[in-house]
């Protein structure tokens, strides 16, 4: 089932640009959807599986982006090395932060991660010498994969979808591993998990670091793809949007998170034409989903589908 889902997803991703080679919604929106998939799948490990909220995830996304931006433009580092540096920075900060911050629960954890996100955002705005301040940094060189320059929409589509598929595959494997089971146990009851001999703090730290790494990875790709970064892209609203993606798609489901990311990206892109009503429609849709499909769109819809087919199956049986 898991492999079938992954296969279908991969096939869809590969088929789209073949069917619509120069479609804006595939090669441009598709790329940002892909980046959101990486972010949401990573965050889902933390929120969905480990049951820990993070309202500051855009901070890690921003660290990856700014590391790539600063190191490649100002210090002429090769882009892969800069990406590695970004991963290292985000990963170590997440690791240092994890122990103290993940001791908190519920609202307190939400507040702490929120504060962290805001601090990082303030640094991006104020450290003008490094980050270019509120106006951001332009002219970031294209991503260079060992001599192959990722330039142009279709190449970006290829790279980002490959990266997104890789993260989905990684996440599926983590979830079904010992670590994944430990995480789910921690989410169920931290106390019970500890009684079973699970290192709860260690499991939570791992989830936090891995999701930070995913975010920094997406950030690095984002910086090269946009060729421009500014603090706006890593604000509190972005963190909230990421949580919405995970919740919208369905928590504790890797495909759910990916689906939520794609759905929200397409929604935002589609709503742009409504200008003044954009936020209204956005909010209303979220409310409707949360009321009628509280498990999230993907999980909810697949349950509805299952129920429908069960009904259908019963009827054919009767005949």
């Amino acid at each position: 089932m898991r492999l079938a889902g992954f296969g279908a997803f991969a096939a869809g991703v590969t088929l789209l640009p073949v069917l619509f080679p120069d479609n804006y919604f595939v090669t441009v929106v598709g790329v940002s959807a892909g980046l959101h998939v990486i972010l949401a799948v990573g965050l889902n490990l933390l929120i969905g599986y480990a049951g820990q909220i993070s309202l500051g995830h855009a901070a890690f996304f921003g660290m990856g982006a700014y590391a790539s931006a600063i190191l490649t433009t100002r210090h002429a580092w090769p882009s892969l090395l800069a990406m590695a540096a970004g991963l290292l920075i985000a990963g170590s900060i997440a690791w240092l932060l994890a122990r103290p911050i993940l001791r908190l629960r519920g609202h307190y954890l939400a507040m702490a991660t929120l504060g962290f996100g805001i601090i990082v955002h303030v640094v991006m705005v104020q450290a003008t010498g490094w980050t270019g301040g509120p106006d951001g940094m332009a002219g970031i060189p294209p991503l260079n994969l060992l001599g192959w320059e990722v330039d142009g929409d279709r190449r970006w589509y290829g790279v980002v979808s490959a990266a997104a598929l890789l993260t989905i595959w990684l996440s599926l494997n983590i979830v079904d591993s010992r670590v994944g089971r430990a995480l789910r146990a921690v989410r169920g009851s931290e106390f019970a998990a500890q009684m079973m001999g699970i290192d709860a703090a260690g499991a939570k730290t791992q989830a936090f670091v891995v999701s930070a790494l995913f975010a920094a990875f997406a950030g690095s790709l984002f910086a090269h793809q946009q060729a421009f970064v500014s603090p706006d892209s890593f604000s509190l609203m972005v963190s909230v949007d990421l949580v919405i993606m995970v919740v919208l798609g369905g928590m504790a489901s890797t495909f759910g998170a990916a689906f939520g990311a794609i759905a929200l990206t397409l929604l935002n892109e589609g709503l742009v034409v409504f200008e003044d009503y954009e936020m209204l429609i956005h909010g209303a849709l979220l409310m409707i989903v949360m009321i009628f499909l509280p498990q999230g769109l993907f999980v909810g819809l697949s349950q509805v589908g299952r129920r429908l087919s069960a009904v259908f199956y019963c009827q054919t049986e009767k005949r």
């Binding site: 089932m1 079938a4 889902g5 997803f9 794609i262 697949s302």
Partner: peptide, 13 residues
């Protein structure tokens, strides 16, 4: 079953 759902999603996308 899941792949059926995926096909629907793919088609709508």
């Amino acid at each position: 079953m899941k792949s059926k759902v995926w096909k629907t999603i793919l088609a709508s996308t």
